[in-house]
C-alpha cells in the first residue's frame, strides 16, 4: 500500500494533502438534510483553468516565454515522437511496451537531459557571438 504514495510529501498515511484537496472539498457523499460548514474562498482552488489561460496576461507571458526559448537546441526533438506514438497506437499496448523498457527509457531520458544541459551551456555563447556580430555591423 505504501508503494502507491509516490507523490506524498509527508510521512502521513493520507499522503500529500494538497494533492487531494479537490477530492476532500468537492467530492464525497453529500446528504441533503445535513448542513455544510462555510467554505468561503476555498472554491477558488478549482477555478476552471481555461478562464485563467484565456487572459491578456497569459498571452503576453506565453509570447515572452516562447521568445526566450532556444529551439535550435536538441531539447524538443524527442518529444513529438513520444507523444504522437503514445497516443496514436491506441496507447495501452504502447504503454505496456514502455513499461518493459522503463529502465532503459529512464536512463535514456537522463542522458538526453544531460545533453540538453550541455547544449544550453553552449548555446548562450553562440548567441552572444551572433549578437556581437550584428552589433558590429
Amino acid at each position: 500500500m505504501t508503494v502507491m504514495q509516490q507523490s506524498s510529501g509527508g510521512g502521513k498515511s493520507s499522503g500529500n494533502l494538497y494533492e487531494v484537496l479537490d477530492l476532500i472539498l468537492d467530492k464525497g457523499l453529500v446528504i441533503d438534510v445535513f448542513a455544510r460548514v462555510s467554505l468561503v474562498g476555498i472554491e477558488l482552488l478549482t477555478v476552471d483553468v481555461r478562464i485563467v489561460v484565456a487572459s491578456v496576461d497569459t498571452y503576453l507571458r506565453f509570447a515572452e516565454a516562447c521568445n526566450r526559448l532556444d529551439l535550435t537546441s536538441s531539447g524538443g526533438v524527442g518529444l513529438p515522437d513520444l507523444v504522437g506514438g503514445t497516443m496514436e497506437s491506441g496507447s495501452h499496448g504502447k504503454a505496456k511496451g514502455a513499461l518493459s523498457g522503463a529502465a532503459e527509457a529512464i536512463s535514456e531520458s537522463f542522458q538526453r537531459g544531460r545533453d540538453d544541459e550541455q547544449d544550453k551551456e553552449k548555446q548562450p555563447v553562440r548567441r552572444r557571438r551572433t549578437a556581437k556580430k550584428e552589433g558590429d555591423e
Binding site: 500500500m1 518529444l79 506514438g85 522503463a102
Partner: peptide
C-alpha cells in the same frame, strides 16, 4: 503510471495519489 512517466515525463509531471 511508471510507464506513462517513462514515456511522457519530459513533457509533464504525473502524480499518483492513493489508495484513498
Amino acid at each position: 503510471v511508471n510507464g506513462l512517466r517513462a514515456a511522457l515525463g519530459e513533457l509533464m509531471d504525473i502524480r499518483l495519489n492513493g489508495p484513498l
